[in-house]
Design a protein around this nucleic acid. Structure first.
Lengths: 296, 296
DNA sequence: AGTGTTTACGCGCCTCGTAAACATC
DNA sequence: GATGTTTACGAGGCGCGTAAACACT
């Protein structure tokens, strides 16, 4: 009948995360018996079993697994509401959280944040898995930067049309060119990151459309490594990273267009600080057009 | 620093709703000094002024107005989480809340709910303003029934292709016909509900497309009244309601198609009881095709 | 042995209600 | 004379930590 106690919900989530009551108790800075009491009160008050003995410790019941996302969501909303109040107090965001793929983080976000004065909101940055669900990420973070299709559920700002580069060593026979045809790649030995990277996905998609197959492919866990391999061993690195190790970047032409992807900044449309965030995104967009003037 | 106390948030919203501290205190079943203490603690803890003296009583500050939606949202999520637990306990929904426009309520939802056995979830029904924001409504209620365009953010089920009827008295010269052309309506004296009704909007949209203008229009506050006027005074009532007062319904043909609108049932895609709700919606859809077999 | 649970005790904090004096409009 | 605020008091509740015995695997 009575609404649930947030400290109980917190306890539940902490246990689910920590995997054991005592570990969670440490994390919550309370004693283990106290935590046990909270958990039992939560379950007794609502007559639901969320945890059960399994092995030496505890595990979630099916009900517990079902409730966990709801619990997390509630705590998140609770945090957000607190942040909203803090925002109303200060008039400015004191912290702004940004998610972006690692490549984007290194080439764009970090350099941009470095240009901001100290009076700007402190920016906390998180690396995104390329398979993140944007609608969820937008709930947890203030700005999501991602190569993405537009989505009506978020306010989306186009930052950049980001080329997918073919990097070659300066000794490579292509080194003096500025672009190559997609089909030409099949003649070469390629270094590409895994399918977790957007550049790889774009490349695969384009190849698929043309029924092209690569013959010599070295798969790496990052664009940087792909570039390093090319710098030392020759071949071509297909990545979105900026050139490194003195490599020469070439555009990849597919059906007359350079292979590229839209980089978008996405924000929850009803975010309480949408004004400030829009300003931040706008500055970021300006920074992007300055860094990549030819791509505008 | 510490997260906000839900009872404080509740206090704030109650005061905003009730308009005065003492009224809100009554509603919360606590004394007025206690409420005052809560409000001040909320504002002191977070160093924000949400309320200020205005006239004899209190009023929201601009910060208060800004925070109110967030506060409401948090309380709603809190409730939802509680309902989720109750659902996990009982295994079935004990209450299912439905929103629908008044016309739909009377002609479809109420008759349908009446057919359900007593072991079915208790259904609480709310009338919707026709200008409701579906994304918000879906947060507050389990099912939203509405003449609507599909929306990716909700799981939408088509219930019915609902005709916009032209009702005439049995003595009217059209009484033996089953359909009329849109343009013919301009010759007649029309009774139509206000633009708050979907039927009226459809009609206006179709007339606009054809550059047609009505000459004799009587605007009413409900479809029922429009029908009543026609039954007693003659003319044509353009509404989505079922026939009443012995009126004859005619389809309105526009560009070869009967004027109609899709009636959809919409549910939050990650609703904790989406399974049960989908079953409810399915039964409702079956009920609709039985009630309007010709329209399937 | 390393989990988590249970019991009992005492302490402290917090919030309530009451009641009465003030303050504003 | 509405409304909301402030003060002070005392009572009750609730949850904590501690500590120790217990239960399960």
């Amino acid at each position: 009948m009575t609404g649930l106690d947030l400290s109980h919900v917190h306890a539940f989530v902490a246990v689910a995360d920590a995997g054991s009551v005592s570990a969670a108790a440490d994390q919550l800075s309370i004693t283990q018996p106290a935590l046990t009491r909270r958990l039992q009160k939560l379950q007794r008050d609502h007559e639901v079993q969320l945890l059960e003995r399994r092995g030496p410790g505890l595990a979630l019941t099916s009900a517990g697994r079902a409730f966990l996302p709801t619990a997390r969501h509630l705590l998140r909303e609770h945090d957000q509401a607190g942040h909203h109040l803090a925002y109303l107090r200060d008039g400015t965001l004191r912290e702004l959280s940004v998610v972006a793929p690692g490549t984007t983080l290194i080439d764009i976000i970090i350099p941009f944040v470095a240009t901001l004065g100290p009076d700007r909101p402190r920016t906390s940055v998180t690396e995104a898995a390329l398979d993140l669900r944007i609608r969820e990420a937008v709930e947890t973070h203030d700005v999501v930067i991602f190569p993405a299709e537009p989505d009506d559920t978020v306010t989306s700002t186009e930052l950049l049309n980001l080329p997918v580069w073919a990097h070659v060593a300066s000794t490579h026979r292509w080194a003096s060119r500025t672009e190559i045809e997609l089909a030409e790649l099949t003649e070469e030995s390629l270094s590409v990151p895994t399918r977790n990277f957007a550049a790889r996905r774009k490349l695969d998609a384009a190849l698929e459309l043309e029924n092209l197959v690569l013959h010599q492919v070295q798969e790496t866990n990052s664009g940087q490594v792909a570039q390093a391999l090319v710098a030392t061993g020759g071949g071509v690195a297909v990545v979105t990273d900026d050139p490194a190790f003195g490599l020469k970047p070439l555009r990849i032409i597919h059906r007359g267009q350079p292979l590229s992807m839209e980089l978008c900044a996405m924000v929850k449309p009803d975010h309480y600080a949408r004004r400030e965030i829009a300003e931040f995104v706008h500055q970021l967009a300006v920074f992007c057009t300055q860094k990549y003037p030819s791509l505008d």
